[in-house]
Simulated assay, not measured.
Amino acid sequence: MRFDQHTVVLLGRPDDPPELPLDAADRIQQAHLAHQAGLVEQGAVLAAGPFLDGDDPRFTGFAVLSVDPQMARELYANDPAVSAGQLVARVLSWQVPEGVLRFAEVPVPTAMLETASGD
């Protein structure tokens, strides 16, 4: 059997994130979404999104990338939420049977207002 290898990024809260005023946290989240959308536009991120109702609140989101793990580390080191200490990016290699995953191009949110509509 043949396998496809993907790079996966688990995003999560650090153990001791810096306290920020709500407006600063909102700006960082906006910048994070814009960064993520830019990675999708570049073709580096194939799919990404937040976790909902998880058993472990440390993990907040997940992304599947088309780049190698080292490049993923570099891309996420430049994520505004990671560089601000609000998120930690854990990079893993993931194998699945060849062809089991297919990714379609779909719009991704670039701002928090787009995530609130539920559309």
Rank of each mutant, 00 (worst) to 15 (best):
E74G: 02
P14M: 13
S83A: 15
R58C: 12
L39I: 10
M1L: 08
A47N: 10
S93F: 01
W94S: 02
Q70L: 13
G118W: 08
Q95Y: 14
L113P: 12
V64D: 03
D68I: 02
L92A: 03
V106A: 12
G54T: 14
Q36E: 10
M1R: 08
E41A: 14
A37I: 04
T110R: 13
M71V: 00
R27F: 07
L87I: 13
L39D: 04
P109D: 06
V9E: 08
F62N: 03
M1Q: 06
F59Q: 12
L22S: 14
V82W: 07
G99D: 01
D55E: 09
A37L: 14
F62L: 12
S93P: 03
V108C: 00
P17L: 08
Q86I: 12
Q29F: 13
A81Q: 07
A84D: 03
E105K: 14
L22E: 15
D79Y: 02
P18F: 09
E105Q: 13
P21S: 11
S83I: 03
G43N: 11
V67A: 01
T115S: 04
G61I: 03
D79V: 00
V96E: 05
P57D: 15
D79I: 04
V40F: 05
G99S: 01
L65T: 09
P109G: 02
D55R: 11
P80R: 06
V96D: 00
G85L: 11
